[in-house]
């Protein structure tokens, strides 16, 4: 009995040593020389391997960053400026600050706003549903509600609201990696600047149908009336294909568009105060009146001047 134990121990020890030697030799023989900075860069990366930067993962990003001559073409949306500054300092580059972004769901076709016209009974996948038909409401552009975006989000920032049937973005978790924007077959989710203290304005609709059709399909649709574009003092709003779009780089968050929108398609979020529509409307009306007065005054001015202006 004792002998058996001794033999077993001996054989296992020898075997272990032998294998360790082989492993040591293989590790030596096949060692790949890598720029040590790749490891350093990888260490400061978020490590989510989400692919939001366009590379296969954090290490691929680091590898590309080390080989690159500048960081202009690379950006880690998850780590944001903080990580990019660290990467830059390791590699001796400088990077310009980029405004932090967040995913915005541009559909407000809640169950209440957008009546269902049929019942979908296929696999719960927006991609499959979109390939099949225009959707279970009269709006062919809106959210299909199967949650492909939720499945695509690696950070748990998206969830379906059972009440509205629409996805909700948790801003504290959203890293703006853009996975959801790619997963949405209707291209409803957009990455927009987070805005100062999270305040931002956006059109929560992408329906390109003409006004009456859009309105019939969904009570909260953008009907492309253009009132917002006319009201905007900053040239931030354009209306193409019967749907308005607010350029977040130009928007000054005055909330006038939100006040004048007849269907409530324009949403403002994270503002400290609730929007007083009447006050804003009055402000617009006053401004218009003033402008009209000014125009009148201009019209009263000598005729020659006007001709010059026209000529």
């Amino acid at each position: 009995m004792t002998q058996t134990i001794i033999w077993t121990v001996a054989i296992l020890t020898v075997l272990g040593l032998l294998l360790a030697l082989i492993l040591f030799w293989v590790a030596r023989k096949f060692k790949v020389e890598e720029d040590p900075r790749i490891d350093e860069v990888e260490k400061v990366m978020p490590g989510a391997n989400c692919g939001g930067c366009g590379f296969a993962g954090c290490r691929a990003f680091a590898d590309a960053a080390v080989k690159a001559t500048s960081l202009d073409n690379q950006y880690c949306p998850v780590g944001g400026d903080e990580v990019m500054q660290k990467v830059a300092s390791i590699l001796g580059f400088t990077v310009a600050a980029k405004a932090p972004q967040v995913a915005v769901v541009r559909c407000n076709g809640t169950c209440a706003n957008r009546p269902r016209t049929n019942e979908y009974d296929g696999v719960q996948s927006c991609r499959v549903k979109a390939a099949l038909y225009s959707g279970d409401t009269a709006c062919a552009f809106g959210c299909l509600g199967c949650g492909d975006c939720v499945a695509a989000c690696q950070f748990g920032a998206l969830s379906m609201d059972p009440e509205t049937g629409l996805p909700v973005v948790d801003e504290s978790k959203c890293t703006a990696c853009g996975a959801c924007t790619k997963a949405c077959p209707k291209h409803i989710i957009e990455l927009r600047n987070k805005g100062p203290r999270g305040m931002r304005e956006f059109v929560s609709c992408v329906n390109k149908d003409k006004g009456p059709a859009a309105k019939k399909a969904c009570a909260a649709a953008c009907i492309g009336c253009g009132l917002c574009a006319k009201t905007c003092q900053h040239g931030a709003i354009t209306v193409t294909d019967n749907v308005a779009y607010i350029d977040f780089t130009k928007c000054k968050l005055c909330r006038e568009c939100e006040a004048v929108c007849p269907t409530g398609a324009i949403h403002g979020v994270n503002f400290p105060k609730e929007l007083d529509k009447e006050a804003v409307k009055k402000r617009i009306a006053d401004r218009k009146a003033k402008a009209a007065e000014a125009a009148k005054a201009a019209a009263v001015e000598p005729v020659e001047k006007k001709e010059v202006a026209n000529g």
């Binding site: 696999v123 991609r127 499959v128 390939a131």
Partner: peptide, 9 residues
């Protein structure tokens, strides 16, 4: 299992 739904994709 919705096999064809997925396989079509």
């Amino acid at each position: 299992i919705p096999l064809l739904d997925n396989i079509r994709q």
